Lab assay of single mutants.
Amino acid sequence: NKSRCTICSKLAEIRHEVSVNNVTHKLCSNHCFNKYRLAN
């Protein structure tokens, strides 16, 4: 079950899903999750 990561755009296994204003951001790693948190 692979999806495209919101941060790095890599097609990968999604580890984190963050839902903001009915938009789901898919994040493939802790690294991308941290980058997402810093950016938002």
Rank of each mutant, 00 (worst) to 15 (best):
S19G: 07
R4L: 07
R4A: 11
F33H: 07
S9I: 07
K2M: 08
N30V: 11
N30C: 01
L38A: 15
C8N: 01
R37Q: 15
N22Y: 05
I14L: 05
L27W: 03
V20A: 14
N22S: 12
R4K: 14
R15C: 08
S3Q: 11
R4F: 04
K35Q: 14
S29L: 01
S3L: 10
N34A: 15
C5P: 00
Y36S: 13
T6C: 06
C32W: 00
C28V: 00
S29M: 02
I7A: 10
E17L: 05
T24M: 09
H25R: 07
S19Y: 05
E17Y: 03
H16D: 15
E17P: 01
C28S: 01
R15W: 10
S3R: 05
N34K: 08
T6M: 09
T24N: 03
I7Q: 11
R4E: 12
K35G: 06
C8T: 00
K26A: 14
T6E: 08
Y36P: 05
V23F: 02
N40S: 12
K35N: 10
C8G: 00
C28W: 00
L27G: 02
A12T: 13
K35A: 14
F33Q: 04
N22H: 09
N40R: 13
K35S: 09
L11I: 07
K26F: 11
V23W: 05
R4D: 04
L27D: 03
A39P: 06
V23C: 03
A12W: 01
N21P: 04
N21S: 12
L11F: 13
A12V: 07
L27T: 03
N40C: 08
L38F: 02
F33W: 14
T24L: 09
A39M: 13
C32M: 01
F33P: 02
N21C: 06
K10T: 08
H25A: 15
R15L: 12
K2V: 02
R4Q: 14
H31P: 13
K2R: 08
N21R: 11
N34L: 09
Y36M: 14
V18P: 03
C5L: 00
T24S: 09
S3P: 03
R37A: 13
K35W: 05
I14Q: 04
K26H: 15
F33G: 04
T24R: 09
V18G: 04
L38G: 15
K35P: 01
H25D: 13
A12E: 05
K26I: 06
V18K: 04
H31M: 15
F33D: 05
I14T: 05
C32L: 01
A12D: 03
K35R: 14
H31D: 15
K2H: 03
I7W: 12
S3D: 04
K2P: 02
L27P: 02
C28T: 00
I7R: 06
T6D: 04
N21T: 09
C28F: 00
A12H: 04
S29E: 04
H31C: 07
L27E: 03
T6R: 05
L38S: 13
N22G: 15
